[in-house]
Design a protein around this nucleic acid. Structure first.
Length: 303
DNA sequence: AAGTGCGGCAACCGCAAAAGG
DNA sequence: ACCTTTTGCGGTTGCCGCACT
């Protein structure tokens, strides 16, 4: 494993996978003496490893307070949120996920979450929808304006659900004073797409001004219909088959039909996320907080 | 059953920051 | 204040096992 494995006779230092015997020795030594100096530890413990390797093995595998195995939905959510805030600062992210190592989180991100976000049409680096990035690249002033407003709103938003451990104890030390208590990029990206889609709809031209005047909190809290009127959580958004197909990145012919020209918001998320993202849909459900279970039941049928 | 391709994960490397002399 | 050593972090690599042909 690793870049170079096996025994390096010239230095007497062993590399590669750890054997159970080595694990046992390392564990026994640390339990007895602690690990004050990794550089001298291998010799004292009778291991033909470098201190760095011993430290890594302890940190990522042998430590007693390590949870291994599948990540929970809540952990997924926390990682995505923290990554949106902190980027690839795995140790900082791991600090907020008890019993998970930075290495494990990094691997999990690269192997699973990154791909899942990409599949949903979000850029895993910026956590923005690819449609918005494209519009930004094209310099669409309306989109840029909307995006700026959206980011601002996201940052000013107060939390509805706390992450596994309060991340802002540390975060306050790194960031300017005005920071979000909980920035949910998933939600933000989803609403961003939704709003920009509504704004670009030919059928909703008359609404554009109305929607321009609304932020996603308003939408979240009240919902709005095609006329920009509050109408509860089951509000409809205008969407054409063409828009839906472009959103989903497939042919109009193969995309699910929007049929009536407007979709229930929950159905829209179902279409948008695809049928393979039930977990993320559940996260969205949790964060966005729709009260209508019926809508989510119908969404379940979609999947 | 054997071969091949791919994804997941453990472990390594290089660099930077912190600590110690 | 400077140099050396140690520790910590993020990126990358390569083995292993599973799925597919």
């Amino acid at each position: 494993m690793g870049k170079s494995s096996g025994y390096a006779p010239e230095s007497g230092i062993k590399r590669g996978p750890w054997t159970p015997e080595e694990d046992k020795r390392l564990l026994a030594y640390i339990q007895l003496h602690g690990h004050r100096s990794w550089s001298s530890l291998p010799q004292k413990a009778g291991l033909k490893r470098c201190g760095k390797s011993c430290r890594l093995r302890w940190r990522n595998y042998l430590r007693p307070d390590i949870k291994r195995g599948n990540f929970s939905l809540h952990e997924d959510q926390t990682i995505i949120q923290l990554h949106a805030l902190l980027g690839n600062r795995w140790s900082a992210i791991a600090a907020h996920l008890p019993k998970r190592t930075d290495n494990e989180i990094k691997n999990y991100w690269n192997a699973h979450l990154k791909k899942r976000l990409a599949k949903m049409g979000f850029d895993p680096v910026t956590h923005k929808s690819k449609a918005a990035i494209l519009a930004s690249a094209n310099g669409d002033p309306k989109m840029l304006q909307a995006e700026a407003r959206f980011v601002k709103e996201s940052f000013l938003r107060m939390p509805e659900s706390a992450p596994a451990v309060s991340l802002f104890d540390d975060y306050h030390q790194l960031a300017p004073p005005i920071v979000p208590q909980c920035l949910d990029m998933l939600e933000a990206s989803a609403w961003e797409s939704l709003i920009s889609m509504s704004k670009s709809s030919s059928r909703s031209a008359a609404l554009t001004n109305d929607i321009n005047g609304l932020d996603h909190h308003h939408v979240h809290d009240h919902g709005l219909n095609m006329n920009g009127q509050d109408c509860g959580p089951n509000f409809q958004v205008p969407i054409s088959d063409q828009q839906l197909s472009s959103l989903m990145g497939c042919d109009e012919a193969t995309a699910p039909s929007a049929a009536t020209g407007s979709m229930n918001i929950n159905e829209l998320f179902g279409q948008y996320c695809g049928n393979e993202c039930s977990e993320l849909l559940a996260v969205l459900h949790h964060n966005i907080g729709f009260e209508s279970e019926d809508a989510w039941t119908s969404l379940g049928k979609l999947m």
